[in-house]
Amino acid sequence: MAAWFLRGIRRRVVTTRYPRGHDPWTADLPAPPAFDPGALTVPLANAVASVCPSRALWLDAGDLVLDLGRCTACGRCLEVAGTGSRSSSCIELSTPGPRGTLVRIPIGGSPG
């Protein structure tokens, strides 16, 4: 206890560390989607982009772009994409600047 106290005064160190692992229940929290690039086709990508109420998905240069900043994890794209998608279970998404939230998912299927 004394060592902890002196260390805190001398170095202004944090008293405990940031959680080193995830709490198990965080896997159940709503999270942005993850897509299977091989299962994505241009029509499917258009379909998931059109159902997104947050304008967080769009097509650009053959990629499906996911803006994590805009995504509200509503899950509508997961219903449309079916087995080619799942929740990413990733909630710690902070980045410096607004551009770091863009994720490009290559569309691997053929247009059908």
Partner: peptide, 17 residues
């Protein structure tokens, strides 16, 4: 804006991060 914390709403652990 210097840092963005995505989420709707972001959980406290995401805010801490």
């Amino acid at each position: 804006v210097d840092v963005v914390i995505p989420g709707c709403p972001p959980s406290p652990i995401a805010l801490l991060h």
